Simulated scan of single mutants.
Amino acid sequence: MIEHRLYLACGAVRRDWLNTRAHFRVGQCGRTDHAPLGALYVWNDDEFAPRSGFGLHAHRDVEIVTWVRSGAITYEDDAGNRARLVADSVQAMSAGTALHHSERNEEDVPARLFQIWLHPRTPGGTPRWATRICSRGCREGRFVTLASGDPDDVRAGALPIHADARVRIATLREGTTLHHVLPTSRRAYLVADHGRLDVGKVRLAPRDGVAVRDQSQLTLVARDDTDVVIVELLR
C-alpha cells in the first residue's frame, strides 16, 4: 500500500516567524488519518523567517533528525554543543533523560528544514548530539544514510540514533529511475522535496509524501530534479 499525503492536505501551523506543514498529526494539528508509522511520529516541513526560531526548550525520550534544505540554523544546547548548520547538513539528537536546546535562524534569509521525530527503543539514557554534511555529489543517483539505529550504518558513517529506523536521502535528476529495496518491515515514509516524483503509480508534487506499507521494493521516477528523503522502519 502506498498512501499519498498531499503537502496542501498536511496540517498547517503559521506564526509571524514560522510556517509549518505536518505530515503526521501533531496534537490537534493535521488530519486524524495521518497516523504515526512505527517509530516515526513527526515529520514537519518547516520554514523559519530570518532572525527567528525556537528559543531554549526541553525534550526528553525522543530522537530528532533535522535536515537543512536551504538557509542555515544555529543550534545550541545545555550540554555545551553549538553549531551553525548550513544547507545539506543533517543533525541527530537523542534527548534521553532531558536536553534543553534552541534552534534559530540567525541569517537574513529564510531557512527551510525537515524535522523528523522518532520514538526511542527505550526511554532514558544519556543525551547525545552530532552533525555532518552530505553534499549533493555524494548522494546523486543513490540513497545515502544520514542517521540510523543500525550499527552497520553507523560504522559506515551514518549519525547514530537510538531508534528502529534509518533516515536516507537521494538526489535524482530528471528522468532518473531508481529501484529501491526496503527493509524487512516493508514500511517507510518518503517526501519529494522540490520536484515531481513518481512512486510506483503515485505521482507526487513537490513536498508531497507517501506512507508505504507492505512493499518490499519501490520504483522511483524523477519527473524533475529533486531530493528524496526517506525514513525506513527497521521493525
Rank of each mutant, 00 (worst) to 15 (best):
M1W: 12
I2M: 15
L6I: 14
A12N: 12
V13E: 08
R14T: 13
R14G: 10
R15N: 13
L18P: 12
N19I: 12
T20R: 15
R21Y: 11
H23L: 15
H23F: 15
R25W: 09
R25L: 10
V26Y: 13
Q28R: 12
C29K: 06
C29P: 02
T32W: 15
T32V: 14
D33E: 15
H34A: 15
L37I: 07
G38Y: 01
Y41C: 02
V42I: 12
N44C: 14
P50D: 03
L56M: 15
H57K: 13
R60D: 08
R60A: 05
D61A: 08
E63K: 05
I64T: 08
I64G: 01
V65M: 07
T66Y: 05
W67L: 15
S70T: 13
G71S: 09
A72Q: 06
A72R: 04
E76G: 11
E76S: 13
E76F: 07
E76R: 14
D78P: 06
A87E: 07
A87D: 03
D88T: 09
D88F: 06
S89E: 02
Q91A: 07
S94H: 15
A95H: 04
T97E: 14
T97D: 13
L99A: 06
H100T: 14
S102N: 13
S102I: 11
R104V: 11
R104W: 09
R104Q: 14
E107A: 12
D108I: 07
L113Y: 11
H119T: 11
G124H: 09
P127R: 00
R128C: 09
R132T: 14
C134N: 09
R136M: 09
R136H: 08
R136S: 07
G137K: 10
G137R: 10
R142H: 09
F143H: 03
L146Q: 01
A147M: 10
S148F: 02
P151G: 01
D152M: 04
D152W: 00
D152A: 06
D153G: 04
V154W: 05
V154G: 05
V154K: 03
A156R: 10
G157S: 10
H162F: 04
H162K: 10
D164T: 00
V167I: 12
I169M: 05
T171D: 02
T171Y: 05
T171F: 04
E174M: 05
T176C: 02
T177V: 11
T177M: 07
T177G: 04
L178S: 00
P183V: 01
V191W: 04
G195Y: 03
L197H: 02
V199L: 05
G200A: 09
G200Q: 11
K201T: 15
A205D: 12
P206V: 04
D208S: 06
V210H: 06
V210K: 06
A211P: 02
R213T: 11
R213N: 09
R213I: 08
S216I: 08
L218M: 08
L220D: 00
A222C: 11
D225S: 04
D225P: 04
I230G: 02
V231K: 02
V231M: 01
L233Y: 00
L234G: 07
L234T: 01
